[in-house]
Design a protein around this nucleic acid. Structure first.
Lengths: 208, 208
DNA sequence: AAAGAACGATACCGATGAGTTCCCTACGAT
DNA sequence: ATCGTAGGGAACTCATCGGTATCGTTCTTT
């Protein structure tokens, strides 16, 4: 703990860039992007505004970097799940749902950083928004892969359904409309992966 | 120009309060709450900032009023559906899903006003936030009622599932991760209301 | 030891935010 | 015609925003 490369003297303080990102993480998550000023981040990070602008071009760039990290964390969770239940796609999907379900209490009343950030970034050209959209697109692709591997009749439809309930569980937790959202979410996803493959499954013939 | 004070005769100009609310509606929906200044609303409403403050205590009150109206619109849609398919709860639920599904293209990339506003209002004591939470709670209650009437085995669970997919469809439309979200949503909800009541339904024994 | 990069702090910039003061014009009543 | 009043609107206050400029200090490197 006391060992550091460059010896930031007494307290084992992380380098400024990390402290800034940690502070931004906390504040953006709990308060939202636009409510949090650069000054506030600096204070929480025990540094100054100038230091922030030495490490990040603009506030928007800091926001984008924060979301990149959050996205990477989610990706890592995906990776872990995929590795832990190798070749058992059904378990992978369930583990994923469990991961989200277990995260719900922590998000409580504050919500998913992606969903919230999206609301604050109406401009699709915003760098942070592109981070989100790419991340979501990638997650969807991976989920479709799992659904395919799990032998679900219509993998894309199943992936859409799972995506919907995962997102919806987070939103409903945030607005407090559904109690025990975590448990409910797990049961729903179980229902999806264990859905009986009825022979009269009308994949393509339904809607259109 | 040619408009008179007490007679909106020539141009069918709505009274100031309506114009303000219409302008706020458009701007809040497309830009978000915090991005939109009172001045901008005044300009779009073809009036002045002072006029806004004569009709609304604060900006927050205007936001709350806007959300009250949106909530009332949703309630009205609920009412219509309930009336149109009286005593046919299955059709009511489907019509509700259709209502949301048909609204998706309009929301495209911008999202649901409730979800978005929630993200911008971390303070649960905020009047507008309370409007949202009450609205969502009420909607959930009504949906549970429909599910019960439809004879679904576990109405609360079914209502939760429907709520999740409805919210999730909106979020996923906003972030562009799921294509044809509307069609997919409809098929999912159909699947829920038409779910075969399997005798081996394992309500409580599933999760743990 | 010297040079150079990174750090910390303060003060500043122009823009914009919400909310207010105050005047001025248009009207109804007398 | 004159007065009183109410609404409209420019201009203002004060705070805060994102972003910069400029200091002196500290640490790394050579």
């Amino acid at each position: 703990m006391a060992s550091t490369v460059s010896r930031p003297s007494r307290v084992a303080k992380l380098p400024p860039r990390e402290r800034i990102l940690d502070a931004a993480e906390e504040l953006f998550q709990s308060e939202g992007i636009r409510r949090v000023g650069v000054q506030a981040i600096a204070e929480k990070a025990e540094t100054t505004k100038m230091a922030i602008y030495r490490h990040f071009e603009t506030k928007d760039a800091l926001v984008a970097e924060w979301l990149r990290i959050v996205a990477a964390d989610y990706q890592a969770a995906f990776d872990r799940v995929e590795a832990e239940f190798h070749d058992r796609p059904r378990e992978q999907i369930l583990a994923l749902a469990r991961f989200i379900a277990e995260g719900l209490p922590a998000l409580s009343y504050r919500g998913c950083p992606f969903i919230n950030s999206l609301a604050e970034l109406p401009d699709r050209a915003h760098p942070a928004r592109q981070v989100i959209e790419q991340h979501k697109a990638l997650q969807t692709r991976r989920l479709i892969g799992m659904c395919t591997a799990a032998g679900l009749p219509d993998p894309e439809q199943a992936a859409a359904e799972i995506t919907f309930v995962l997102e919806g569980a987070q939103v409903s937790t945030q607005n407090g409309s559904i109690d025990r959202a975590g448990e409910r979410l797990l049961r729903i996803v179980q229902g999806i992966v264990d859905r009986p493959r009825s022979p009269l499954d009308a994949s393509g013939a339904a809607v259109d």
